[in-house]
Design a protein around this nucleic acid. Sequence first.
DNA 1: CTAATGACGTAGA
DNA 2: ATCTACGCCATTA
Length: 103
Amino acid sequence: MTAYDRIYEIVRQIPPGRVATYGQVAELAGYGGQARLVGYALYRVTEALAVPWHRVVNARGEVSQSPHRYGSDLYQYQLLEQEGVEFDARGRLCLKQYRWSGE
DNA sequence: CTAATGACGTAGA
DNA sequence: ATCTACGCCATTA
């Protein structure tokens, strides 16, 4: 059991059609103020872990980019759109509307 | 044990 | 509202 597994547990609790910010996940996982750890943890997520990593966005409500993820950042947008999340022209979503309250 | 690495958030301008 | 600079810690080789 690593600290990242703790983070994955939190992310797995995010319901479909909802999103959470890195800082929010960090806080729920007991790592308040360490939003970066969440980002670092998600970087190492694999399909086998069954973690809905696409439901985690930054505080601005936009998808963070990473060169080594499965597909491209576009893939994350597609997954979210499939769940009914709408993005504006800037590629951002309304956190007020989609932000997960923490179950 | 040390060094390298990596999806963010906040404050100030 | 946008842009820049800085802090920060677990995991892996």
